[in-house]
Computed example of a mutant assay.
Amino acid sequence: MRVEIWSDIACPWCYIGKARFEKGLAAFAHRDRVEVVFRSFELDPNGPRGTTAPVVEMLAKKYGRTLDEARGMEEHVAATARAEGLDYRTDGRDHGNTFDIHRLLHLAAARGRQNALLDLAFRTNFAADRSVFDPEVLAALAVEAGLDETEARAVLADETAYAEAVRADEREAAALGANAVPFFVLDRRYGISGGQPAEVFTRALEQAWEGYEPAGTDPAAEACEPDGACPAPQV
């Protein structure tokens, strides 16, 4: 069985959803026969490349909140992430265009190191004191994930490298009706949207394995929408 996951490293619910999916997969009896593939989905494809903005300021502007309210939004997500055993920094994080990160993830997929790089990119973006939007940091993460440094730097320097692969993933997401991430597709038969609880993923895997349609998913589960929009909790 193949599970495809559309996500963006700028999406906190993708970070949380990946952890929850992996817990759900661990409880699935046939987990050794599941192939997991990550697909590209940019939350803010029109965002300027090479520039960043503080996350708290971005949230305040997007949702018409005060900075204190925006910090409260971040704290809400942070508490959810920490409950899943994930580190989450609420101060000093930045937001930027993720196209180059997606291109590098496609290189990593071709070299069998996609999951390793994705985990590093998520942790760096949400928990580290360095910016994943810095090309030097991104190159270092590629090496840490097991990629060849020269090849990784060549991809980052060539804006056309794996660009069509990223766009193809995004076109496919649109064709499948995915308008928010994370978005999970099980064996090209069933789709699940949002950062569902781990037990929901386990149940969906079991039902997909048996050929039944998954039930019990929450259509309102938290997800991030295009242009960087994520649910704004009440604070």
Rank of each mutant, 00 (worst) to 15 (best):
A229C: 14
F126V: 02
L104G: 00
F99G: 02
A223E: 10
E84G: 06
A60P: 04
E159Y: 14
D94F: 06
G92W: 09
I16Q: 01
W6I: 13
L25N: 01
L25S: 03
I16Y: 01
A110H: 03
H30W: 09
V181K: 06
R171I: 10
T51M: 11
G146N: 03
D119S: 15
D94Q: 12
R89C: 03
A152W: 02
Q114F: 00
R103V: 01
S40Y: 02
A223Y: 06
R113I: 00
P48V: 12
Q196I: 05
Y63L: 08
F28Q: 10
A139C: 10
D227R: 15
A79N: 12
A19P: 00
I5W: 00
D218I: 09
K62M: 11
R153N: 01
D91F: 05
F122S: 06
T90K: 03
T80F: 08
D119E: 12
T150V: 07
G191L: 08
A180M: 10
G177Q: 05
T52P: 10
D134A: 05
K62Q: 08
T98I: 01
T80Y: 09
H106V: 15
A152Q: 02
C11S: 15
A154Q: 05
G64Q: 07
C224V: 08
T51G: 14
E84C: 13
N125H: 15
R188Y: 13
G24L: 06
A173T: 02
D68M: 14
F133Q: 12
Y88C: 07
N46M: 09
E75N: 13
D68L: 07
E149M: 03
A165Y: 01
G191N: 04
A154M: 10
L141V: 07
R71F: 14
Y190Q: 06
L105Q: 06
S131P: 03
V37G: 03
P135D: 09
G146W: 00
L59A: 10
V200D: 05
R167H: 09
W13Y: 13
G195R: 01
F21A: 08
A163T: 00
D227E: 11
E136M: 15
A208E: 04
W13E: 04
G191Y: 07
E22A: 08
E222K: 05
Y212H: 13
L120Y: 02
V200Y: 00
P12S: 07
A109S: 15
E151S: 02
A116C: 02
A110M: 07
N125T: 10
L205P: 03
A83K: 11
L138I: 14
C11A: 11
A220D: 05
V3G: 01
D87K: 15
M1Q: 03
